[in-house]
């Protein structure tokens, strides 16, 4: 087992501990206000993510150095995304369906699915487990707009950055090693730059949709990285789980005040 592999396992174990703690804290929030649905869905989503991590750790321990095929951890991740999306979608008061938002979410995830297939060569599972992300991203985009999470000029900036990122990633698949490295550095700067900005926004605003956006962005960064960058992305992903809890707690408190 390489040192990096050991580090990624350690970080996954640490993330599982964070998930377990967050789960306990969410249960406490649920106890305080049992008639509010959002904490229950976030709790179930975190539980699914915990099961996914436990499965991954168990698989790595029982069958080291073998590629994980179509397995329960991906199903658990699918559950995590779907339950979180279902909860957030119902929390939205805004019921509009803007075609540009749907097309944007669809295009981004379709490009991601294409990249996953190129990187892993696994067609069926990448397509099946990529589809829930379209719904999740669309829900986040709707939520960010309807809650006015960012200033108006920030939305086009994010869209342009995301488009540049996808162009860089797709181009990197078809270029030689030196060019790929340069393009990867560009992607890395955008991915981690936006992620740090989202993390700061999460702690500042504690908006549930910003927290979901941070969670989604860190997950996508995890899937796009390997080796040391992957370990960094796992750290950010663990923080995003904490920000989800903080956002839910804030929503529950605001309801209590009302």
């Amino acid at each position: 087992m390489s040192e990096l592999n050991g580090l990624s396992i350690f970080l996954t174990v640490a993330q599982s501990v964070i998930q377990a703690v967050v789960l306990v804290l969410i249960i406490r929030v649920i106890k305080k206000n049992s008639s509010f649905f959002l904490p229950k869905f976030v709790g179930l989503s975190v539980l699914s993510y915990l099961v996914s991590n436990v499965y991954w750790i168990a698989y790595d321990a029982l069958r080291p150095d073998t590629r994980l095929p179509f397995a329960a951890n991906e199903i658990a991740e699918c559950a995590m995304i779907l339950l979180l999306a279902a909860g957030l979608d119902s929390y939205l008061k805004d019921r509009r369906k803007v075609p540009s938002e749907i097309i944007f979410s669809f295009m981004i995830i379709i490009i991601d699915i294409f990249l996953w297939i190129k990187w892993s060569g696994e067609w069926i599972q990448d397509i099946i487990f990529g589809i829930p992300y379209i719904y999740f991203v669309w829900t986040i985009v709707k939520g960010l707009f309807s809650t006015k999470a960012f200033k108006n000029f920030m939305y086009p900036v994010i869209a342009v950055l995301l488009t540049i990122l996808k162009i860089l990633q797709v181009t990197a698949v078809y270029t030689d090693e030196v060019t790929t490295f340069r393009l990867d550095v560009g992607s890395w700067i955008i991915m981690f730059g936006v992620m740090i900005w989202l993390m700061i926004e999460c702690f500042r605003k504690r908006n549930i949709f910003v927290a979901a956006a941070f969670f989604q962005w860190s997950t996508m960064t995890m899937y796009s990285c390997a080796e040391l960058d992957y370990c960094f992305a796992v750290c950010f992903n663990s923080v995003s789980i904490i920000t989800l809890y903080l956002a839910v707690r804030k929503e529950v408190r605001s309801l209590d005040i009302r």
Binding site: Y55, A72, N73, A76, C78, A79, L83, D89
Partner: peptide, 24 residues
């Protein structure tokens, strides 16, 4: 919240628990 995503999410939780047991 009886939506498609909610139902599939609920089913996926039971699948992943079953998968974890079978793996262990």
């Amino acid at each position: 919240l009886f939506s498609f995503s909610g139902i599939v999410g609920a089913l996926s939780i039971s699948m992943s628990f079953h998968g974890l047991y079978n793996l262990l």
